[in-house]
């Protein structure tokens, strides 16, 4: 069960482990400094912080899109390298934009990761159907992206990420461009999917409410250079529903995280 995975994971190697990771691009400024964090399998970690704190960079490091400058990054107990990062079908990425191929139908977009790995076509069709069903878009399988709303496009993007049954899901502000209603709905859907699958998630967001609603751990980061400022445990029980948003404990956590974020942003401003 995802909700208990982090407590029962004593003997399992951590899903992701940052050991004093430093990141800089070329001779540029330090983006991430002495960043250490251990994510147990099943953790849902929300990353919040002022812009420039390296949240997105963190995801790129995990994804192997960019190498660490110093320190070590381990995935499933093994050192992450760009060559290895996503070879085991274990990692999926949801970008800020839906990043769909406009010339492919919804079904073909979801099938893309399978196709790039030469999954047999019959198996492919089945996996695509399952993934689309997870996000409730089966009836739109033959549509083209431009025929979909913003929320639907994002759902396709999530289905594409889930089609490989990833162990690790990286989400970079996926709902940032959506209206609040759609965002809330997608948050609930994402957690509902999580009840049925077990993945570890890193979720970058600007919305404190979203971070509290989704995650079991919130990592607040400070900027210039990006550092882990504080971690907040979110002990609200899963499954979380719209009722969770009325829970006083939820509001207390949103307040706490907001204040923490504001204090971090103030130090950046001065």
């Amino acid at each position: 069960m995802p909700s208990t995975a982090s407590s029962s994971a004593k003997n399992v190697s951590p899903a992701v482990e940052f050991r004093a990771v430093e990141k800089r691009y070329g001779a540029g400024p330090v983006i991430l400094d002495a960043f250490s964090l251990t994510a147990a399998p099943g953790d849902f970690i929300a990353l919040i912080g002022p812009s420039g704190c390296g949240k997105s960079t963190l995801l790129k490091l995990i994804a192997g899109l960019s190498p660490v400058t110093a320190g070590a990054l381990l995935l499933g107990g093994r050192t992450a390298t760009p060559e290895r990062a996503s070879t085991d079908d274990e990692l999926a990425y949801v970008f800020q934009e839906p990043t769909l191929l406009p010339w492919l139908t919804v079904a073909a977009n979801v099938a893309l990761p399978l196709e790039l790995r030469a999954t047999p076509p019959d198996r492919r069709a089945e996996l695509v159907r399952t993934a689309l069903a997870l996000v409730g878009l089966e009836p739109r399988a033959a549509y083209y992206p431009r025929q979909l709303s913003g929320g639907q496009k994002m759902r396709v993007s999530i289905a594409r990420a889930l089609v490989l049954s990833p162990q690790l899901l990286l989400l970079d502000e996926p709902f940032g461009a959506l209206d609040e209603m759609t965002r809330d709905r997608l948050n609930e859907e994402l957690l509902a999917i999580r009840e049925r699958q077990s993945w570890t998630a890193f979720f970058v967001t600007h919305s404190v409410a979203e971070a509290v609603f989704l995650s079991n751990r919130i990592v607040v980061m400070s900027a210039n250079p990006g550092r882990l400022h504080r971690e907040i445990r979110v002990d609200l029980p899963y499954p979380r529903t719209p009722a969770t948003r009325r829970d006083p404990a939820y509001h207390a956590l949103v307040d706490e995280a907001s204040q923490l974020l504001r204090s971090v942003e103030d130090t950046v401003a001065t």
Binding site: G64, S86, T87, F95, T99, L112, L116, R117
Partner: peptide
């Protein structure tokens, strides 16, 4: 689109796949 190229890198597409399935249609 830079994001689409990253998507292909992420899924470890070969250079040939990237040209045939991404760059040419785009």
């Amino acid at each position: 689109d830079r994001n689409l190229v990253e998507l292909f890198q992420l899924y470890r597409a070969t250079k040939f796949q990237e040209i045939r399935r991404l760059r040419i249609p785009a």
